[in-house]
Simulated scan of single mutants.
Amino acid sequence: MFKKFVSAAMAATICMSGAAIANLASSNGFGFTSITASAAFQSYTIRLEVGTKIYTSPTSGVSNSTITVGTLYTIVDEQTVGNNVFGKLKSGAGWVIVRQVSNVPYTKYLELNTPIYTSPTSGVSNSKITVATYYTIVEERTVGTVKYGRLKSGAGWVIVEGQPIPPVQDYLIPAYTNNLSKIIAVGRQTVSGPCAAYALAYCRTMLDGRTHSYTEYYDGNQCWWNWGNYTPLQNYTSKLAAYQKAYDLLKAGQPVIFRLNGSYNCDHYVTAVGYRKNANRSNLTANDFYIIDPARPSSELNTPAKLLSGNDLRLVDGKYKIVVKA
């Protein structure tokens, strides 16, 4: 990052002896007065805890407010004042201390296959350390609880302290991901009628860890839920309440069966196996859920889970139905 001195007076400070600078720091009660600012800056996010001081400016030493919610905040500029690096909050509330100036350069031993990131904020690692040895770190930056160091070689950045928080992913229940090959072996519905039995066979396969056939639950005319230890007695006047129940069961690892609008104004049953990462429990819709559709096309035979779209729970006699483990 290019730096420049923003004050001739501050530039003069640099010419002082170490003792003179130390005396100046103690006299103002806030720290060193040398200031550097970025010529070109890329914004980033950093987690700030409750109680973090917010300053009116990097040089004022005045803090008249604090962070009230511990979460990620966006930093849109930086200035270094003495040993402190201040970050400007995107909200305009002021400046916070984002890190201390470290004693760079230094060397650090890096293990084989240590990820190398394109930047501290990208989360993108497209190369790794190929030789386990000592490497020179020429710059540091802390993002959240992780400290990154820039390699002297210019190859990128490595983590020198802490561990990154894994990104939030769409959620699929472990019973699905752990039994995918068995679920695929159940097959798909190719004739009209047994969609419910197929949906139940998917559930039992996930819960039991062995492949079940739809014929175990189908008598040629209808599906018998109790043969698979499931119950259809989950009827809701509120669609949201039905989805919330399904969400809670999926979160606990249980597959759930939805009754959807089928062709010719009839029932169609699918098996819910997960939900989107941004799903909001207080405002769930059909599009938030991952399902296995027994009537999926042959092109999706080996990738059964997909987002439910273009369909919804079917309303019959004022009730929405989901089928759950008894």
Rank of each mutant, 00 (worst) to 15 (best):
S57W: 05
F258P: 03
L89D: 00
N229T: 14
I14G: 13
R141S: 11
T285H: 09
L250W: 05
V6I: 12
R150L: 15
E111Y: 08
V50I: 13
T271G: 01
A242I: 03
F289I: 05
G193T: 00
G318V: 10
Y55N: 01
D170V: 10
Y320I: 02
V186F: 11
A8N: 12
S17D: 12
A197K: 12
N280A: 13
N23Y: 15
T107V: 04
G61I: 13
D170H: 02
K152M: 03
E300H: 15
K90Y: 04
I173P: 13
C203S: 08
L315Y: 15
Q254R: 08
W224L: 08
Y275H: 02
A20L: 06
T114M: 01
Y148R: 01
W157Y: 04
I322P: 01
A252H: 06
V256Q: 01
C223K: 04
P297I: 06
L301W: 06
L240V: 15
G220C: 02
S57K: 04
N113K: 14
P297Y: 11
W95Y: 03
K152V: 09
S122Q: 00
I97Y: 05
N64P: 03
S38W: 08
K182W: 09
I14N: 14
P115F: 14
I14D: 14
L307N: 15
L89Q: 00
I257F: 13
N261F: 01
S91K: 05
P105C: 09
L307C: 15
L301I: 11
F289L: 10
A12L: 10
I165N: 07
Q234I: 01
V146Q: 04
V62G: 02
T211F: 10
K182M: 06
S309Y: 10
C195T: 01
P194W: 07
I67Q: 00
F5K: 10
Y109P: 08
V273R: 05
V273S: 08
L315V: 13
W157I: 02
F2I: 15
A9H: 11
V324D: 09
N261D: 12
L112I: 08
K182S: 06
N229A: 09
A272I: 00
I137Y: 05
R188H: 12
N287A: 15
F86M: 01
C15S: 06
V158H: 00
P167F: 01
I173S: 12
A175N: 07
I97T: 06
G228E: 02
Q163C: 06
I137H: 12
I137F: 07
S298Y: 15
Q163E: 03
